[in-house]
């Protein structure tokens, strides 16, 4: 591609990744969550692959490592609930500590410090989906 497209896409790359992280982190307050934010971040990888056609070699090992870490942390967080009560027990909510603000039924303005284990699971699933979709896009475009 030409030079203008390369520079503009490099400028617009940072807002895409930051918007994806915003959607992941605010998954328990606004529409969105881990899957949607991960798909947005994978769009940044597709942008890089479209603009720099054959001049760039994205390494597959880093994405594989991140995907493994995301799935493993999700499963570990699910099994840590067994120690407290049951499988997938939300052990951080209503504890008035970190991520444990007590919320009563009704309309409020949204507190980021709430939700228990849900934001952590959103983050791990977001990392897993983003790296998995990036891996799929890299592998398919390399073999075309």
């Amino acid at each position: 591609m030409s030079k203008i497209i390369k520079i503009i896409s490099l400028i617009i790359l940072n807002p895409i990744i930051i918007f994806g992280l915003y959607v992941i982190v605010h998954g328990h307050l606004t529409p969105g969550g881990g899957f949607q934010g991960g798909a947005i971040i994978a769009g940044a990888t597709a942008l890089i692959l479209v603009v720099f056609e054959n001049n760039i070699k994205l390494s597959r090992g880093l994405f594989s490592l991140f995907e493994f870490l995301g799935l493993t942390s999700f499963i570990l967080m699910a099994f840590w609930g067994i120690v407290k009560n049951t499988f997938f027990y939300n052990f951080l909510t209503n504890s008035n500590g970190i991520l444990g603000k007590t919320i009563v039924f009704g309309i409020n303005q949204g507190y980021l410090n709430s939700g228990g284990v849900i934001p952590l699971m959103n983050l791990s699933v977001g990392i897993e989906v983003a790296s998995g979709l990036s891996l799929i896009i890299i592998l398919i475009t390399r073999n075309l």
Partner: peptide, 21 residues
């Protein structure tokens, strides 16, 4: 959902808490 899981988004609380499996 708000009282039990502390999350404003009911869909997110179902996906990750009630039906986490």
């Amino acid at each position: 959902a708000q009282r039990q899981t502390g999350s404003n988004n009911v869909v997110s609380s179902i996906v990750f808490d009630y039906r986490g499996l």
